[in-house]
Nucleic acid binder design. Structure first.
Lengths: 243, 243
DNA sequence: CGGTATATTGAGACGGCTCAATTTCTGTGG
DNA sequence: CCACAGAAATTGAGCCGTCTCAATATACCG
């Protein structure tokens, strides 16, 4: 076992799949024993380009990955964030041609899993196929909430909503209470995720700090007033219930 | 066959599924013979509420359906539009609790299909399960593009992008060239889809008209200058290729 | 034919943007 | 361990795209 951390990332992934779609030991074992190829990526490196077609999906083992699109003048919109234990482009198993890129927001390590293997294991174990489908559905639900957030809410709410979401997702991941978690994003990247300028992110962040709702540093978030933050972001975790 | 239009909507749905995931005659027949329950909905009626849990999915047979979320102060964000031949909430097969609502943007008729039936047919025909998964992936890709659109582009581009997308989707549906299609949305609803005020929709629309890019009436769109509109919206149909 | 929904227009306000300078971090090599 | 360079954060000032509020005109429907 040359890479213990590899194993734990895949285990995390399987565990989360299994928490909603019962998978028998056989199926879990099939996933855990899939060959993976470790890949380390530096911060700010884009490792999947729009238009590219790949033969593998990327399981995040460590770090933070963003899926994003770009407009003609180079503005980026981050469309989803992927924590360790998540496959950042599971949909590529079904549609290999990327319509959206992947970038490492911070130094990250990925485990590449061959599409063929994922398809094979899905065919052999229908429960796994269902679980993959579910994972895509949940991710779509998250993107939809981001759309609501960005389409309709002012900067302060958007940001509060994002912090609540990430707290909830981290809590699901590591059984913590989510009050404090790593979020290694620059204010620029935060802006790309929220549809805001880095300048405005900075000012909005100051506002949230002055309100004593959160304490945000370069790479971590501490929530000081959960109820206040939930109210500010109109956060309702229901859309994450199936995650 | 009491409802010929039912049949054609389901046939349309099956045909589009089959165009990307080969389905044998058996599988297609299984889908076509699923029992459906017809439902007519008036314009502006919400027929799936957030938080509700249903036991069926809704295939659009006629009209136009919007999936949307709402903020605390009642602002709506339409997250996706569903044309005839699409199941507006296919994801509910996997996650029955709705995190987003459905509304008829215009008078519409829906065909309810039981989740149980859809699951059953998916288990019996793995190709169908894959096709369902794919449909959800494609829809997610569309939502992601909307997020990019709304997060990063100015009103004029957003609107142009939407018109291009709908043209392309209609063209896929009815083999037309998509230069002219029905889009029975009020300016208010257009605003809800684009993250804009109806007032601003009105002004932006006037701009596009003055530029001779489109001609938009209450319930239909005619594209006068496709290339110009594509440029204005930075539209790239790649994300619809798998649809 | 009347009533309600929708579209249109105007005027003013404001949230978030741009541009630009400065300060503070962070990591690296000497 | 310090110095330095580049990245990131912070601040200021002015602008502009979009919103709000409000009034009017037009279109649709029973």
């Amino acid at each position: 076992m040359p890479y213990p951390s590899n194993h734990s990332a895949m285990a995390l992934f399987v565990q989360r799949l299994a928490s909603h779609t019962p998978l028998d030991a056989d199926a879990r074992e099939a996933l855990l024993s899939l060959p993976v190829q470790r890949h380390d990526v530096r911060a700010h490196a884009d490792f999947v380009e729009v238009g590219s077609s790949s033969d593998h999906a990327s399981l995040v083992a460590e770090g933070l990955v963003g899926r994003f699109g770009q407009t003609g003048d180079g503005r980026r919109q981050i469309v989803s964030l992927h924590l360790p234990g998540e496959i950042a482009d599971l949909q590529s198993v079904i549609v290999p041609q990327a319509t959206t890129a992947l970038t490492a927001l911070t130094g990250s390590t990925l485990l590449r899993v061959a599409h063929d293997d994922l398809r094979r294991v899905g065919l052999r174990h229908p429960g796994i196929a269902t679980a993959f489908w579910r994972a895509c559905v949940v991710e779509a639900a998250i993107v939809a909430q981001w759309l609501i957030n960005i389409g309709q809410r002012p900067a302060r709410s958007r940001m509060a909503h994002l912090f609540c979401e990430m707290a909830t997702r981290y809590a699901q991941l590591d059984q913590s209470d989510g009050r404090r978690y790593r979020l290694p994003m620059t204010q620029e990247q935060l802006g790309d995720a929220l549809g805001l300028t880095s300048v405005h992110v900075n000012r909005t962040l100051q506002g949230l700090r002055e309100e004593r709702l959160v304490s945000v540093s370069r790479d971590s978030v501490e929530i000081l007033d959960w109820d206040g933050l939930v109210a500010a972001g109109e956060f309702d975790r229901a859309y994450l219930a199936a995650a």
